[in-house]
Simulated assay, not measured.
Amino acid sequence: MEISGIFSAIVIGAVIGVLGRLALPGRQRIGILWTIAVGIVAALIGSGIASALGVADTKGIDWVEWGIQIALAAVGVAALERIRARR
């Protein structure tokens, strides 16, 4: 992976992570680095799921893929919040 690929993964991960946090009600007590990490993982897994469903490569914006990624990020943020709240 080239440096531009790593940079774009971080930026897209941050966007997906923030959108996932916004989808949840209330305040989440996790940092921006955890948000980016959850977003990157959600983007990778969401792309895989969208490819498996055959909705990843469409004309224009892939709204279904983005929806899957944001939903996964919301689940990841909620799970991380619960894990951190137990400590």
Rank of each mutant, 00 (worst) to 15 (best):
M1D: 05
M1S: 06
M1R: 01
E2D: 15
E2Y: 13
E2R: 14
E2C: 12
G5C: 07
G5L: 14
G5Y: 01
I6Y: 09
I6F: 06
F7G: 13
S8E: 11
S8A: 08
S8T: 10
S8Y: 06
S8I: 12
S8G: 00
A9Y: 06
A9Q: 07
A9G: 06
I10R: 05
V11E: 02
V11M: 09
V11S: 02
V11I: 11
I12T: 00
G13P: 03
A14N: 00
A14M: 07
A14L: 13
V15A: 05
V15C: 05
I16M: 04
I16V: 15
G17Y: 11
G17P: 06
V18K: 13
L19N: 02
G20I: 05
G20A: 08
R21P: 07
R21T: 12
R21F: 07
L22Y: 15
A23F: 15
A23I: 14
L24Q: 13
P25R: 10
P25F: 10
G26H: 07
R27Y: 13
Q28F: 13
Q28R: 10
R29W: 07
R29F: 14
I30Q: 01
I30Y: 03
G31P: 10
L33I: 14
W34Q: 15
I36T: 09
A37M: 10
A37F: 08
V38G: 00
V38K: 02
I40H: 04
I40N: 08
I40G: 04
V41Q: 03
A42L: 02
A42D: 04
L44P: 00
I45V: 14
I45P: 04
G46C: 01
G46T: 00
G48D: 01
G48F: 09
G48I: 00
I49L: 03
A50C: 08
S51F: 12
S51K: 15
G54V: 03
G54C: 04
V55A: 08
V55L: 09
V55P: 12
A56Q: 11
A56E: 09
A56I: 13
A56N: 12
D57R: 15
D57T: 13
D57L: 15
I61H: 15
I61L: 15
I61K: 13
D62K: 13
V64L: 14
E65K: 15
E65H: 11
E65T: 15
W66K: 11
G67R: 02
G67K: 01
G67N: 05
I68F: 00
Q69M: 03
Q69T: 00
Q69K: 05
Q69N: 02
Q69V: 00
I70K: 06
A71K: 04
A71V: 07
L72A: 02
L72H: 00
L72F: 05
A73C: 04
A73E: 01
A73L: 00
A74L: 01
A74F: 07
V75K: 03
G76S: 08
G76T: 08
V77T: 01
V77P: 06
V77C: 01
V77Y: 10
A78E: 05
A79V: 07
A79T: 07
L80W: 09
E81Q: 12
E81K: 11
E81M: 03
E81Y: 04
R82F: 03
R82W: 09
I83H: 13
R84P: 00
A85M: 06
R86W: 05
R86F: 04
R87N: 11
